[in-house]
């Protein structure tokens, strides 16, 4: 049985179609990622699943309960961490935790085993007001609060946005640990590089899902040959490469440019064509989630 079952959900705000026929399933105990830029509809989807919004069309079940009819049952079973930091800034770390425990009618001690691995990291600051914490610590506190009632499903909306690389990586480690304890996690992020930390991902853009699969299989769907090219003058290289024979597409990709080649592409011929570009370096490269995302967006 699926922990989350979304069927053909649409939701509009005025003229803007935030969600446009979204469907997917999340298995029990799965770490499922919604990957997509701002405006992809991730937050709206979370709000619908967290029973804060009713969909215009379609329906969904969370933990076997209908999001419209049984929303009270769902509210008892899910932990929700909204995109913005949404704890009481003027309460201390400890007070926030106690407040949320009281809100769900539980005792902190009863869930301490679940919360402890995360909470212990911020415990030294427990008398500090939540508003004074760093980005990474705020996220840990918010996660602790979302876990306090032992939810069976966790909704995390962009938990790593605005958090530095070290805290981000720690945060993903924590999610992996929670998954081990059988909690189903639905998490969203705009960072493609975080996709590999999920069991399965859905690439979303402008209210639609471009593709759903495991990160490896998503990338495997990239069927063109891809090269990474470098040169001393990256901009001139980009312009020149686009004009070269057999180059279907070329776009900046961090340190190198990624180039999608046709069947007739020939490396030696390419080098000859770009003889004027100094320090030219070309090698085949493996596509990443981001390459796939670009490909899917263009389809």
């Amino acid at each position: 049985m699926s922990a989350i079952k979304v069927e053909n959900i649409s939701k509009s705000f005025g003229k803007v179609k935030a969600l446009d026929g979204i469907s997917f399933d999340v298995k029990r105990g799965e770490l499922f990622g919604l990957i997509g830029p701002d405006g992809a509809g991730k937050t709206t989807l979370f709000r619908v699943l967290a029973t804060l919004l009713n969909p215009d069309e379609g329906g969904a079940e969370v933990d076997g309960f209908d999001i419209v009819k049984d929303y009270h049952a769902i509210r008892e079973r899910v932990g929700y961490m909204p995109g913005r930091f949404s704890l009481y800034q003027d309460l201390t770390v400890e007070e926030n935790l106690n407040f949320f425990a009281a809100l769900f009618g539980v005792k902190v001690e009863d869930s301490y085993d679940l919360v402890a691995p995360i909470y212990r990291q911020i415990e030294p600051f427990k008398t500090r007001r939540a508003g004074k914490l760093s980005g990474g610590m705020k996220q840990k506190l918010a996660l602790s609060c979302a876990l306090i009632h032992r939810p069976s499903v966790l909704f995390l909306d962009e938990p790593t946005t605005g958090v530095d690389a070290v805290s981000r990586s720690e945060f993903w480690d924590m999610l992996a640990d929670l998954k081990q304890r059988g909690i189903t996690i639905l998490v969203s992020t705009p960072y493609m590089d975080e996709a590999s930390r999920c069991d399965r991902i859905a690439l979303c853009n402008e209210g639609r899902i471009l593709g759903i699969d495991t990160p490896t299989d998503i990338v495997a769907g990239f069927d063109s040959s891809l090269y990474a090219i470098k040169g001393d003058n990256m901009y001139q290289l980009l312009l020149a490469a686009r004009k070269a024979n057999g180059v279907r597409e070329c776009y900046p990709f961090g340190e190198a440019h990624h180039m999608i080649a046709d069947a007739e592409f020939d490396v030696e011929q390419f080098k000859a064509e770009l003889v004027e570009v100094k320090g030219l370096h070309i090698e085949p490269t493996k596509p990443s989630i981001e390459d796939m995302f670009i490909k899917l967006m263009k389809q």
């Binding site: 709000r47 967290a50 029973t51 804060l52 009270h72 509210r75 008892e76 899910v78 929700y80 909204p82 995109g83 913005r84 930091f85 949404s86 704890l87 009481y88 800034q89 949320f100 809100l103 769900f104 009618g105 609060c145 009632h149």
Partner: peptide, 13 residues
Amino acid sequence: EMGTMEVLLVSPV
């Protein structure tokens, strides 16, 4: 505005 209402509403309270 702070977003805390979102969390309050999602709780069973």
